[in-house]
Design a protein around this nucleic acid. Structure first.
Lengths: 199, 199
DNA sequence: CACCCCATTGAACGACCGATCAATGACCCG
DNA sequence: CGGGTCATTGATCGGTCGTTCAATGGGGTG
């Protein structure tokens, strides 16, 4: 009665893709062993052979999601820009510009964050967010230096602000994706940075 | 075997408070009939007598939450300010300033939003967010007029931006409440508005 | 005081959950 | 081609879920 055998990672990948499909279509609370197995065309018991527990499968899904959705990086093209302000502006612009096409993962990301109170989830999410913010902090350190270290403006505070802006834009996009105005958000982001946070 | 009787709305209020307590402490997915009843010190069956279904109880809880957490309004003190820019600034500042003390409700709000794919929830949330944004749009209309209608800046786009900023700040607060810097956010909000969104 | 209404209870039902495990047969190796 | 390994299956377990309902007795009414 057993079906065809697959290599360890192939089968795991198949189950993870099925879980991802179910999560996107029906919501995270519908990611059950039976549903994932049905979506993957396998039996439910197979999940426990490959992942041990359902929580481990979902945690693996979360890790892959975080790696895909929170992947800010200073690309060589950005690093080559002459001023720190321009680099931060380009980095922020890239993140906002990419939001619409990341709608599914981002929706799932907030689902993981706020859909459960499990410390296991929140730990990983917080860790990924800290790493995400650290990418911005590097550039922000150069920016505040370039601005001549205005009082009350630190690299950390500026990075927190920029990340808050990205998250706010993401939330607004999820509310009404068809109506979300990417260009207005990009323009606002530029204006915010060029104001130099003058009081 | 029956216990003491209570008036209709008293009992409903008691059950709703219990549901709210459970949701805040254990998460929305733990808001079950048995848990809410235990928290309220009643039996589970009582919930179905007063609310019909569990979904109706949770929807009522959501409505109360939305009324409490998304209650932006132009107070007389704000309306009395001489310029539209000042009014918008004061309105936005008030919303950001109030975030830390609204931590619980806001956390629950995002839990409702992203924790389930039920259209019943999302409809109501979207409606409340539209109403919330409309409060800002009123003031934003005056602001863009005051700015002389810069190209590409409409009342709607400005309101979307401001709401995105509030939501971003809220999300950032939830990530690390102890470390959230309210003053930095308020300063950034002021800077953003005073930049007039110059490109 | 007696009566009746109905708010309240708690046991029960079916459905679905995560998880376990013996049975099975596909696949690799000799 | 034959045999052993092990990935796969499906029935099954205990538990919790939302929901129902007959039985119960508190509390206002006459």
């Amino acid at each position: 009665m057993p079906g065809a055998k697959l290599a360890e990672d192939e089968r795991q990948g198949q189950l993870l893709r099925a879980a991802y499909t179910v999560a996107l279509r029906d919501g995270l609370d519908q990611v059950t062993a039976r549903r994932v197995a049905t979506e993957a065309g396998t039996s439910a018991g197979l999940i426990y052979f490959h992942f041990g527990t359902m929580e481990d499968l979902v945690l693996t899904l979360l890790d892959e999601l975080l790696a895909a959705a929170l992947d800010a990086e200073v690309t060589p093209a950005v690093a080559a820009l002459p001023t720190a302000s321009a680099r931060l502006e380009a980095l922020l612009d890239e993140e906002i510009r990419g939001l619409p096409e990341q709608r599914g993962p981002v929706d799932l990301f907030f689902g993981f964050w706020f859909g459960s109170r499990s410390p296991r989830y929140r730990e990983r999410i917080n860790g990924a967010l800290v790493a995400y913010q650290r990418v911005f902090e590097g550039v922000c350190g150069d920016v505040v230096a370039e601005w001549g270290h205005p009082p009350g403006v630190t690299a950390t505070a500026l990075a927190e602000l920029v990340v808050a802006f990205v998250q706010g834009a993401a939330v607004q996009m999820l509310r009404d994706p068809a109506h979300f105005d990417v260009e207005a958000m990009r323009a606002a982001a530029r204006a915010l940075l060029r104001s130099r946070l003058a009081p």
